[in-house]
Structures are given as structure tokens and as C-alpha cells.
Amino acid sequence: MTNLTTVSVFILRGFSVIPELQLLSVAAFLLIYIGAVWGNISIIAAVTLDTSLHTPMYFFLKHLSLVDICSMSTTLPRALLATMVGSGEISLPACAFQLFAFVCFGSTECFLITSMAYDRCLAIYRPLAYGAAMKPHTCFSLVAMAWGSGLLFSAFHTANTFSLPFCGPNVVDHFFCDIPPLMRLTCANTAAHEASGFAVSGCIIMSCFALTVLSYVRILATVVQICSAGGRRKAFSTCSSQLATVLLFYGTGSSAYMQPTTRYSPLQGRLSAVFYSILTPTLNPLIYSLRNRT
């Protein structure tokens, strides 16, 4: 008989169900986390201290690095500590806060990536109007909108998930509190909640993705008209590296969130989460700082 006791504590399964892989993953992810935090802090410090980097592109990059640090710190340290001490317990309020913070930072990154694509599009497609269009107050407004939209988006998904009753099994088949594995633990019909979450996520995320792709399409169309081979190569290198990160971010995120709970695979969910919550923030400092010198 199913236990219908209301759940007040969840058990996070961790990175893997195999103990040997748990210890190996702790060592690997700890090194990745240290490298990612160091890389993103270095970007924030460099952009803040070097006046030659006080441009719109690096202003957005600084906030993107801050978001990446916060996003990884929301999930990874707790998961690493839980694996080392052998206890994955997390209270329901703490789980709700972790979900809220993670979705907030993830969605804020989505909006920032869109703003960065718009910035690069203006810089390459309309260079003469770029200075007038991307004034400091415009950049501040775009960043404020990204953070504000992230908070609203996160508040909706947190309320949509935790308004459902949790009872019976309390083991979350993941290394942090995420929407799909939590939905599988509810003892109520989730169809309406899934439909509303899918609709809101689909409209907002796909709109950001479409705007980002359109920006890069315009960039590519402008690049092919550049007379200098060196200029085309430099601009195309910048565009292609950023677009690769966009595809990685959206591809892994959509595979985890843009599908019904009934089709959710715990293994696929953990693998996707490693990409969009760990590897993407780790690679962003390399891609956006080393390849973007325009």
C-alpha cells in the first residue's frame, strides 16, 4: 500500500546510484566548480578594474559571470557535501528555495544571453548607431529587466511546483531539487500544472531563443558582406563561438524541461543538468572572454 504521509523532507539521490561513481564525480565536479568560480570571478574583476573594458558587451558579460557563479553555487556545493557525508536530506522549504534560486539564475542567464546577442547584432549590423543605442542607461535597463524577469519566472515555477501535495516516496532522483523529478513525487494529478508550466516556459524561452537566433542570423548576413577576409574571419569566429554556447544552453535545458513528466528519464535528467548547470557556466568564461575581443 502506498504511504500517503505528507513529505516534509526530501532525499536527494546524488550524481549516480553507483557508490564508486559518486566518489569519482565529487572529485571531478569539485575541480570543475573551483575552476568555474575562479574563471568567472577573474572576469568580474577584470571588467570592473580595467576601464578599457567598460563597454556594453563586457558589462553584460560581467553580469553573466555573476549569474553563473550564483547558479552553480546554488546546487553544486550542497550536492558535493551531501555525497561526501553520505546524507542527501533537504527540508521542503530548503528544496523550494533551491528550486527558486536555480530557476531564477537560469532564466536570468537566458535573458542576458538574448541581450548580449542584441548588443553584438547592433555592433556589427549598425555600428554607426551603436553608441547612441547602447547607452549606459539602456544597458542598466536590459540587465534590470533580465533580473526582474528571472525573479518573476522563478516565482511562477516554484509556486506551480510546490502548490502540489507531496506524499509517499520522498527520494528525488537528482542531485538537486529540480522541477521534473519533483513532479514525479506528487500524489495529485499534475496535468494542469505541467500544461501551465510548459506554456509559460515555451512562450518565454522560445521567444528569447528566436530573438537570439535572429540576431545571429543578421550578424552572419552582415559578416559575409565584409570585404576584408581577416575581418570576416574574426567576426565569424566570435559569432560561431557564442552561438555554440547558445545552442548548448538551450539544447540541454529544453531536453530537461520541455517534455512531459511521464517521459522524464532520471539518467537523462542528470546528464542534461550536468551540461546546463555545470559545464555551460564553466565554459562561458573561455568562450566569451577569449573569443570576443571586438
Rank of each mutant, 00 (worst) to 15 (best):
T6S: 13
F10K: 01
F10I: 00
I11Q: 14
L12V: 09
G14F: 06
I18Y: 08
E20R: 13
L21V: 11
A27R: 14
A28G: 05
L31Y: 05
V37Q: 03
I41H: 06
I44E: 01
I44S: 02
A46H: 14
V47D: 00
L49S: 15
S52I: 11
H54S: 14
L61D: 00
K62Y: 04
L66A: 09
V67D: 06
D68W: 07
C70Y: 11
M72N: 07
M72H: 09
M72W: 07
T74V: 13
T75N: 15
L76E: 04
R78V: 15
L80I: 13
L81M: 12
A82F: 09
A82G: 10
M84V: 11
S87F: 07
S91R: 10
L92N: 08
P93Q: 07
A94V: 02
C95D: 05
C95P: 07
F97M: 11
Q98T: 11
Q98A: 04
F102D: 06
T108F: 01
E109C: 10
Y118C: 09
C121N: 02
L122S: 10
A123I: 02
I124V: 09
Y125P: 04
A129P: 00
G131C: 10
M134I: 03
K135G: 13
V143M: 11
A144T: 14
A144S: 15
S149F: 11
L152F: 10
H157D: 04
H157Y: 09
H157I: 11
T158E: 05
T158C: 07
F162H: 06
L164A: 02
P169N: 12
N170T: 03
N170E: 00
N170K: 06
V171L: 07
V171T: 11
H174C: 02
F176S: 07
M183Q: 13
T186A: 07
A188I: 00
T190V: 08
S196D: 00
S196Q: 09
I205Y: 02
F209K: 05
L211V: 06
S215H: 00
V217Y: 04
L220S: 11
A229N: 09
T238F: 01
C239Y: 01
S240C: 14
T245V: 13
T245F: 08
V246R: 02
F249H: 02
Y250L: 00
G251W: 03
Y257M: 12
P260F: 06
L267V: 14
G269T: 01
S272M: 08
Y276F: 14
S277Y: 10
T282A: 15
L286F: 12
Y288W: 14
S289P: 03
R291T: 15
T294L: 15
T294V: 00
